[in-house]
C-alpha cells in the first residue's frame, strides 16, 4: 500500500507543480491545494499502514493493530493550516483580480519590478487624526 500511496503522492505533486506553473493565478492557487493533499498522503505514508483499526484505546487496553496516531495528528492540523493558507491565497487572488484586472500570473508579478513610486507628501491638515487610527476589523 505504501508504494501505491507514494506513487499517488508523486503524481499528485507533479500535477500540483504543473498547476503552479500555469499562467493563470486561479490554477496556481489550486496547485497549492493539490500539493498540500499530496503531502498529507505522504506524511501519513511515513507512519506506515500497518494498522487495521483506528487509533482508539479503551479501558480494556490498546488494540493489537492500531494505526499510527502521530502522523494522523500531524496531518490533521496540517489540513486546517492548509485551509487557512488556501483562503488567504484566495483572498490574494480576488484582490489581484480587483486591482490588476487580470489573473495572468506573470503580468501581475512583473508589476513588482516596476520602479518605486514617489511617496505621497505628508498630509498637512490634521496630521495625526486619520493616520493614527488603528485599522477597522
Amino acid at each position: 500500500m505504501e508504494i501505491i500511496a507514494a506513487i499517488t503522492a508523486g503524481i499528485l505533486v507533479s500535477i500540483g507543480v504543473w498547476l503552479l506553473l500555469d499562467r493563470n493565478l486561479v490554477r496556481v492557487v489550486l496547485g497549492v491545494v493539490v500539493i498540500g493533499n499530496a503531502i498529507n498522503i505522504a506524511v501519513l505514508t511515513g507512519g506506515r499502514f500497518n494498522g487495521t483499526t483506528a487509533p482508539f484505546t479503551s479501558a480494556a487496553g490498546v488494540p493489537e493493530l492500531a494505526s499510527n496516531p502521530l502522523p494522523q495528528a500531524l496531518v490533521l492540523t496540517a489540513i486546517v493550516i492548509g485551509f487557512a493558507l488556501f483562503v488567504f491565497a484566495l483572498a490574494v487572488l480576488k484582490r489581484t483580480w480587483e486591482l490588476h484586472g487580470t489573473t495572468a500570473t506573470d503580468r501581475v508579478t512583473e508589476v513588482a519590478e516596476d520602479d518605486a513610486p514617489d511617496l505621497a507628501p505628508p498630509a498637512l491638515a490634521t496630521p495625526s487624526a486619520p493616520a493614527d487610527r488603528e485599522g477597522r476589523r
Partner: peptide
C-alpha cells in the same frame, strides 16, 4: 484514502 487507512479524524 484517509478513511480507508484507519484515520477517521483526519
Amino acid at each position: 484514502f484517509f478513511l480507508a487507512i484507519n484515520a477517521p479524524d483526519v
